[in-house]
Computed example of a mutant assay.
Amino acid sequence: MYSKILIRYGELTLKGENKKDFINFLKEDLMLRIPKNEIKMEYDRAFIDYSAKNLDSLKYVFGISSYSCAYELENNLETIKSKVIDIANNKNFSSFAIDSRRHNKNFSMNSNELNIFFGDAVLESFPNKKVDLKNPDLKIYVEIRDKKTYVFTDYIFALGGMPMASSGKVLHLISGGIDSPVAAYLMQKRGLKVSFINFITPPHTDKKTTDKVDKIIESITKYQMNATLYQINYTKIMNYIGLVSNQKYKITLMRRSFYRIATKLANKFKIFALSTGESLAQVASQTLESLYTIGEVTDLPVFRPLISFDKNETIKIAQTIGTFSLSIEKACETCELFAPKNPVTKPSRKEAKKLEEELSDLYNLENEIVDEVVIKEYKIINL
């Protein structure tokens, strides 16, 4: 039976003097999922106790490149050799290779000598097998560290990216569509702790629609264990914008309003960036002119991780993270309800500002609904 799971840090190894801080962020994430006494962090590796639950937990952890189920042994040459032969005895193979790493520079053999020593031991026990360094059927890894040695045969590739919250916080405009959940996941991958803002328009937005958004957020939250949703009742403003003289601009004005409201909330809760699921040229509100006109209203950076993605690329990620089946459920989305028959595709800032001047109460209404925001908390107890 394996005794440990050996974890490799990936990108964290490039962080120089800041590396320790990023390792601490990773440890904090692991501690939300795994008992503290089962975690050991080192400069270039982490080790946790082996269990099926701990192994499954690592599927949702950003900041690690790969991990391996390993045997933890004393730094004794004969003990390690015995385990290497035992592993070979339980595998079906014709060719093999040994990959040794001597992190403990006081150990009696260097890495190349260890490869020869363990390779000879396997050949002596299995004389009909052969060494193949390029494409072996079986590869046995040996890592000799300062206090213990770890022996394993497989690499399990992880999510990569940066540890949860190591890059700060972002407020993400979430909908029930395919794109925005994927964009939130990609923000998490870069080490951002994601909070969400969602606009509802009751009675048009029914319970089925809000339940759908809840399920999507819960699905994404397994990567950061807890999240906050700021839910905005947008009905009054949606109806008000509907009175504007140039109906083609309704979606542009609505999204400008979304950005202003999101910016107010972000400032209130000390969040320094917004993010969205926008992809360039996908719909009328995502042309370059639209992004330029809509983005004018905020002084916060707006992250758009899907900006160059085509729909199939986004769908593939949505299927991988489990949000696709939720996103395609029928629901009453605010943007869809409000969209004019022929929305403007190349809006101008000048025209948008002129139309907003027709709506003299718009900014007051936005301030009002920010004060009336409903805050919902999500917490993952057991994955």
Rank of each mutant, 00 (worst) to 15 (best):
Y141S: 03
N106G: 03
I80P: 09
N90V: 14
T149S: 14
K83W: 05
K134H: 13
Y150N: 05
Y71T: 02
M162A: 13
K148I: 06
I140A: 00
L133I: 15
K130Y: 12
D146W: 03
N115K: 11
K134C: 13
L171I: 01
I64C: 04
F157Y: 15
Y141I: 11
L114N: 01
S94P: 11
K59T: 12
Y60N: 09
I98T: 03
S95M: 14
D132H: 14
S95F: 15
K53H: 10
L159F: 12
V170I: 04
I140V: 02
S66W: 12
N54E: 11
K139C: 04
E72Q: 15
K105R: 07
D146K: 09
N128V: 02
S68I: 05
I64M: 02
E113A: 05
Y71W: 07
F96R: 03
A70Q: 09
L58M: 12
E72D: 10
T149H: 05
S95T: 13
Y71R: 02
D99E: 14
F117Y: 15
F118N: 00
E143M: 04
V151M: 04
P163R: 10
L123F: 07
F96Y: 06
S66C: 08
L114R: 01
A70S: 02
Y150K: 03
E78Y: 14
Y67S: 09
D132N: 15
A70K: 03
N110E: 10
Y141C: 04
A97M: 10
M162W: 11
N106K: 04
Y67P: 12
K134T: 07
K134S: 15
G63F: 07
D99P: 07
V131S: 13
N104G: 00
V151R: 00
V142C: 07
S66Y: 14
L159A: 09
S65T: 10
I116K: 01
S94I: 14
K130D: 13
N104E: 03
P163K: 10
F126W: 14
A158Q: 15
I144D: 02
A70N: 04
F157P: 07
H103C: 04
F126C: 08
S95W: 13
A158I: 10
F96N: 01
S108F: 08
S108Y: 11
L77G: 00
N76F: 00
T79R: 11
G168Y: 01
E143R: 04
D86Q: 12
N90I: 10
D86R: 09
L123P: 13
N110M: 05
I87L: 11
E74K: 15
R101M: 03
L55M: 13
L55V: 08
N89D: 13
S82L: 10
P127A: 09
P136W: 09
P136Q: 07
V84S: 07
N90K: 06
F118T: 02
R101G: 00
N75A: 07
G161A: 05
G63L: 04
K59L: 06
F117E: 05
L73S: 04
